[in-house]
Design a protein around this nucleic acid. Structure first.
Lengths: 152, 152
DNA sequence: TGTATAGTTTACGTTTACGTCAACGTCAAT
DNA sequence: ATTGACGTTGACGTAAACGTAAACTATACA
């Protein structure tokens, strides 16, 4: 299977993207498929890179950022020029991703609550739904107890 | 504190965005600050909405999607027209977010590995670093044992 | 009174990530 | 021989999310 190759539309349909998108990734230097004459031929490794590209996209990376990360993975062939610089970048990226994960957890939590409330509403079919508007950090805790005290 | 109001630049510096961005969110219907003559005045609630907008952005929502979610939070005043339609949307969104979270976890895990390896390298200062290229689902497990068998 | 500061609108520019033709090559099958 | 099916390279279009002046207003302060 690893020595298998793929056409552009095979990969496109497997990963549910358009051939145009895949060619675009090549334009941006994220892929470098071999050619059979004029046609692109994708190796197993190319497929792996495409997988990483799409996963990177799903978590919000730009193609440029994904490119840097792929370069990282390509460093395995020797010359780790500025390892400490790379280290810094990777660690900054990890910090960003962890904040993102916290945000994600919170959003999921809130949406679950909303979902549950809507379900209850659909069962009871009566009364308005009360969603919660989360307060930003730094909110006076006293406000949470007596919100109606706030004159608008 | 809840009756406090904010100028555009106060919110901009607090949340580290430009006034231009905040006005743009208003253009897209995500904010509706009051006016003092010509100038915008943001209430505590407006600030909360801005907070939600930015958090939504961090997890990859488009402004249009964020707008829908904010509308969801505004449903608290009665009329839940198509609660079941909303429910569907919310649940689809949850599913997407959970996949995103899995991707995020995996990316973080891999970056941690890379980071650790770079650190070890910087200590030992010898030998090339071996990063791991994760395989997409469907990879022949046998390949993982004998990758060199793949002739390129 | 003048200037600095903060806000406003209008409008055009920019980047990213593709979509969408158009025009063409190639190979297999009818 | 021609018709698809699949591939290619331009080239232009587009939506999103702002950036960046330009020109103006209003308030504050020395």
């Amino acid at each position: 299977m690893p020595d298998h190759t793929y056409t552009i539309s095979q990969l496109a349909s497997e990963f549910d993207v358009t051939p145009r998108a895949i060619r675009y990734y090549e334009d941006r230097g994220l892929l470098n498929p071999a050619r059979a004459g004029q046609n692109r031929i994708y190796t197993f490794r190319d497929r792996g890179r495409l997988y990483l590209i799409l996963r990177g996209k799903r978590v919000g990376f730009s193609l440029a950022e994904i490119g840097e990360m792929l370069d990282l993975y390509d460093l395995d062939d020797g010359q780790v020029g500025q390892a400490s610089a790379v280290l810094e970048k990777v660690q900054r990226r990890i910090a960003i991703l962890e904040r993102q994960k916290q945000d994600l957890d919170q959003v999921i939590f809130e949406l679950r609550n909303d979902s549950r409330k809507i379900e209850v509403f659909l069962q009871a079919n009566s009364g308005p739904i009360k969603f919660e508007m989360p307060m930003p950090a730094g909110t006076d805790p006293e406000y949470l107890e007596h919100p109606e005290a706030a004159a608008e």
